[in-house]
Design a protein around this nucleic acid. Structure first.
Length: 461
RNA sequence: GGCGACAUAGCCAAGUGGUAAGGCAGAGGUCUGCAAAAUCUCCAUCCCCGGUUCAAAUCCGGGUGUCGCCUCCA
């Protein structure tokens, strides 16, 4: 199993801290709005990471935080004229709902920042006590100058960044790279009591607290979008290094960004799609296929055309699966063709989650299922394998199956159609047929009356 | 200015030294009274130039082009 580690910028063999167990943390949303299709990529990808480790037999602890206190939430609360906690609660619910509809398996734990406020304050205090933080006017900053490993995750050299820096000078900080741990509150903002007065935590501390609380001081994999490498993950890691001298996580995984029709997705370009919007037009499986058909670290270009293609491709797998009853596959029989394909699937996944290669093996199974020249037990076994491997990628979840095609009420239209045929029968003097139609409709409670103006019908129960 | 990614058929996309996975679209066949569905078959030498090698899409050098990060952001 090889994983590309952002920290070393190379693929490394994955070795868990504890054999047979995976401790995984991936950054969740800040709940100030519905999450967008780019966020969905990260959530779906780490869902697949989790599912694959479970497939391999690991006991997985997967923690995903929910940031429910943040500047953006406060801004949104002001915009909607509500309390920040109402906004956070509403969009946190929306996040859980949309995640479910995308077929994302609920993480083991989904802690919220406001639930761990005392722990956050305690961690900042510890940093201060150890000399890694300083307070100015009720704001507490991390002192990057004291930690010699600062920048080791993202590969940033602080001095070099300064040349082209467009950062607005914050005169309180000792160094421009120093980041906020605790923010003194302004009037009207939500507050918590702390040793430095009333305020609220900076974004970077909460993830350290929530991850360490559930996974230990150092854990296996920390994930998120590529944009989080700097400064968010750098700053998270800096706090862990300052506290214990150990990195927060051994492997850092980052998924690539999503563009829309070649441009960065943004509200001003009107190419901004929430996951909720896309789910109205395409099934969750199509969205999942779209993301997994490309390597997770590559940038991906979103378009409706590609979504339609992905939808068709998924339907292709479903139609193959429908041909054979996988539950009829003999339990004990082994087929070398299928084992070879399963090995290919695992080889792909073991190579830094090459989901595109893994998907190709699903189609190879589909072609075995379709090949009527092959023995039925082999084809059944292929169906069984397709179901199992597809599930590792999150496909074929029954609860995601589209609802029964619901038709509008067509009964009136259908009755008119039947009556047109009855009129043809009468014109041909086929009284036997026309009478039979009248009698059968009557049994259904529909009464027919022929008149010079044409045939009238009414419901007569 | 600093750091980094990418360039494979009409489209999407695997492939990191041994002669191009898979999907979508397209073409042709089978099946069918017709249509649809289903099914089978076909469809690329890898941005340009130079180099290394018995052998390169894959390594090295030089171009050209596209994109990202350095600021809240998955």
């Amino acid at each position: 199993m090889k994983i590309y580690n952002t920290k070393t910028r190379s693929k490394e063999d994955f070795i868990p801290l504890e054999a047979g167990k995976l401790k995984l943390y991936a950054c969740g949303p800040t709940v100030y709005n519905y999450f967008h299709i780019g966020n969905a990529r990260a959530f779906i990808f780490f869902d697949v990471v989790r599912r694959y480790f479970e497939y391999l037999g690991y006991e997985v602890s997967y923690v995903q935080n929910i940031t429910d206190i943040d500047d953006k939430i406060i801004e949104q609360a002001i915009a909607e004229n509500k309390d920040f906690s109402q906004i956070a609660a509403y969009y946190a619910d929306a996040f859980l709902e949309d995640s479910r509809r995308l077929g994302i398996k609920p993480p083991t734990v989904q802690p919220r920042a406001t639930e761990v406020m005392q722990e956050i304050i305690a961690l900042i205090k510890e940093l201060e006590d150890k000399g890694f933080a300083y307070e100015v006017n009720g704001n507490v900053y991390f002192d990057t100058g004291v930690l010699d490993t600062y920048g080791s995750l993202s590969g940033k050299k602080i001095e070099e960044q300064l040349a082209g820096a467009r950062v607005i000078e914050n005169t309180e900080k000792k160094h421009p790279a120093d980041f906020t741990l605790w923010k003194a509150s302004k009037p009207g903002e939500p507050v918590w009591q702390s040793p430095w007065g009333e305020g609220r935590p900076g974004w970077h501390t909460e993830c350290v607290v929530m991850s360490q609380q559930h996974l230990g001081r150092s854990f296996d994999i920390h994930g998120g979008g590529i944009d989080l490498v700097f400064p968010h993950h750098e700053n998270e890691n800096a706090q862990a290094m300052a506290l214990s001298g150990k990195p927060l996580a051994r492997y850092w995984m980052h998924n690539g960004f999503l563009n829309v029709d070649g441009d960065k997705m943004s509200k001003s370009l009107k190419n901004f799609f929430t996951a909720r919007d896309i789910l109205k037009e395409y099934p969750a499986e199509a969205i999942r296929f779209f993301f997994l058909s490309k390597h997770y670290r590559s940038p991906i270009d979103f378009s409706k055309e590609l979504m339609t293609e992905s939808h068709k491709a998924v339907q292709n797998l479903h139609s193959a699966l429908a041909l054979m009853d996988e539950s009829a596959a003999p339990e004990s029989t082994e087929h070398s063709e299928i084992q070879a394909i399963e090995t290919k699937f695992r080889d792909g996944m073991n190579d830094d989650f090459n989901t595109a290669k893994a998907i190709a093996s699903l189609f190879e199974l589909a072609s075995i299922i379709r090949n009527s020249k092959l023995e039925t037990p082999l084809r059944q076994a292929a169906a069984k394998s397709l179901l199992e491997l597809g599930s590792v990628l999150g496909f074929f979840q029954e609860e995601l199956a589209p609802a029964e095609t619901s038709l509008p009420d067509l009964s009136a239209y259908l009755i008119e159609m039947i009556l047109r045929y009855r009129s043809e029968a009468r014109a041909n003097k086929d009284w036997a047929l026309s009478d039979r139609i009248r009698d059968e409709l009557k049994e259904l409670g529909i009464e027919i009356k022929d008149s010079p103006e044409g045939t009238k019908w009414s419901i007569n129960k």
